[in-house]
Design a protein around this nucleic acid. Structure first.
Lengths: 349, 349
DNA sequence: TGGTCTCGTGTAACCGGTGCCACATTCCAA
DNA sequence: TTGGAATGTGGCACCGGTTACACGAGACCA
């Protein structure tokens, strides 16, 4: 129980003096370097623990020529998604002495690449995690490689280097949705896609098509309509689809945001869910379980993906043997928005 | 057009050599210190701009004995709220050379205060922003004061020091909701509160009561029920209220999360919104505009509040004359969930 | 003419750690 | 016994900036 020097925080020199060694030896202990006598190491560790000493990250960073900060670059409008990703990353960071710095971005801004260069360069980031859809930006990847900044992409489709990738098999989730609708007996099934700029739009459509194919069904072109991942686009496309004379009995939307738009369209038109219309969304956003009737949706383990992304930053990039598998399969969460199609009275065509 | 030394990043010494001065003079320019000849200053600034030199924050931080990081401590479950707060804070930080580090926390954890002490101490944070409800934690405030760490609280009720506060007048927003319901002709109005631990629960109730009072109405105790700011609690309390023989014609929920629970309860019971039941929420969360029919809600300018919070960190704490007013009044966003009450047929009591 | 004050600039030490290398010991094989 | 490698430790420069202070030059005043 040494009285701590008032006001001053402990430095490596204080610890060295207490232990009767040079600060270099304390440094070795901190960095778990070899060539330290076991007894010496134990003694120093005890002193460090007793006094709650923590080395200054800025001083260490200066000497190491890199910081103890991990950046999260994103342009994802889904705040729930981003929050879970943050939490997952922090799961891995906390305890290792790293911190998370957030950087939203706009890929369409003319200063985008300059901003990013400044961000990773000035901070000498220990690594960055890229969330969709900026994770699909190849020019940014090139920049990061050039800056020798470790990075991990969170994405929904296989991209070039698996060592830098945390993959969600969106296609599999969409396929599960398709199977479920087919099993329930639906035949006239519509799909509202996301914008083509997003890789996930294509993955989800491809998976959905594949799932239907397993049941001998195919996605009719006239029932495949383009949305924009927004509520408004879901509402508009939903109206379009539901006003047709032979309207679909089920709609799969590329995300929950659009699916909730379809809900509104159905309500407007007095079409009952799920009796007259089955709906499946994607993301399992908070709204899916709060909307009425609760929505069947496809859930991504976003927090796990975030944790994995951060952990991948800490394994040597070349050591692909050590690299843990980073592929995640979504789950279909069944709620009350899916049911067998109503018996359709033959329309007098 | 000097060829940059390959691979090496520029340091203050490089700039000093180019300008033919000592690094100390460059340092003065960077920090906008006095006693630099105007011509010298201009020349150095030109060189800095030309080469895109940016001083290393870690080296500066080490010498300054504080970092260029601002922390955001939160335990708010509303991801939309947190995202907007982050964006607002970043609005103020970007361009000043500061970065935002995120730290979720759990006030009930036994290691809570130790974690926070470590967080602000080890990083030598330039400041922290506290989001509700952890912003109401007095022991944390005490800790920050002791650590001489600048802080700003984002809260919904006047707390001790205005210089450290960004205030949202939740009560005024709730009063606006009350007025609107009263104007529409509602008389049997229920309130579902948040948990008592949250200051906002009390503020919103108080404001709502006050707004009703302006119309000679009062909040009946039997129509004031305790919720928990969750969807489930809104659903349960909504069922309770709507199953009563003389059920309310309007319900004001302490937040949108609970309000969406009331929606579900109403749908379950076949009660039409807004014809038979008016609902108002609070927060204007994304769900408010996506749920059907779109919900009337009270909107907080969260992003502005975040920006203000960060800006307050950069004015001298004592200089309260300079401190900008940091009070925000919510707005009532009217949508389709409010209407005059249905004419009630006299019940055979 | 000299003294003091303000301005403008440079020098040296330092912030709190790490890298590189020298050096002393111990261990083991030849 | 000896030499070379492996082990354990310390010294010193350095990471890229800042503070404290010294110093010279010119302005102003007595």
């Amino acid at each position: 129980m040494h009285a701590p020097k008032s006001g001053k925080r402990l430095t490596i020199i204080d610890i060295a003096q207490m232990a009767g060694v040079s600060k270099k030896t304390v440094s070795r202990v901190i960095n778990q370097a070899p060539y330290v006598n076991e007894r010496t190491r134990a003694r120093i560790e005890a002193i460090i623990a007793e006094h709650g000493y923590e080395p200054d990250p800025q001083a260490r960073g200066l000497a190491f020529r890199r910081s103890f900060l991990v950046g999260l670059i994103h342009d994802n409008p889904n705040s729930q998604y981003m929050e879970n990703l943050q939490l997952g990353i922090l799961d891995a960071l906390v305890g290792r002495g790293y911190e998370l710095v957030i950087r939203p971005c706009d890929r369409r801004s003319p200063s985008f690449l300059d901003d990013m260069r400044t961000f990773v360069g000035r901070l000498r980031l220990a690594g960055v995690v890229l969330a969709p859809s900026v994770s699909e930006d190849e020019s940014l990847i090139k920049l990061l490689s050039a800056a020798e900044c470790p990075y991990v992409r969170v994405a929904c489709a296989p991209l070039d280097k698996p060592a830098h990738l945390v993959l969600s098999h969106d296609a599999r989730g969409a396929a599960a949705a398709a199977r479920r609708l087919a099993q329930l007996g639906h035949r006239r099934i519509a799909y509202i896609s996301g914008p083509p700029l997003f890789r996930s739009s294509h993955e989800r459509r491809a998976g959905f098509t594949e799932g239907l194919a397993e049941y001998g069904l195919e996605l009719a072109p006239e029932l495949t309509v383009p949305g924009a991942y927004t509520y408004e686009s879901g509402l508009a496309r939903g109206r379009d689809l539901l006003l047709r004379t032979d309207r679909p009995t089920a709609i799969f939307a590329g995300n929950d945001e659009m699916a909730s738009g379809v809900y509104s369209a159905a309500h407007e038109l007095g079409i009952r869910i799920p009796e007259e219309l089955s709906i499946i969304g994607f993301d399992d956003a908070p709204i899916a379980s709060r909307i009425w009737p609760a929505m069947t949706s496809v859930r991504l383990p976003v927090r796990d993906m975030g944790r994995m992304a951060a952990e991948k930053l800490f394994v040597a990039p070349q050591d692909s043997s050590e690299a843990p598998s980073a592929e995640f399969t979504p789950t279909l969460i069944e709620r009350q928005s899916t049911a067998p199609p109503a018996v359709i009275k033959p329309s007098r065509s």
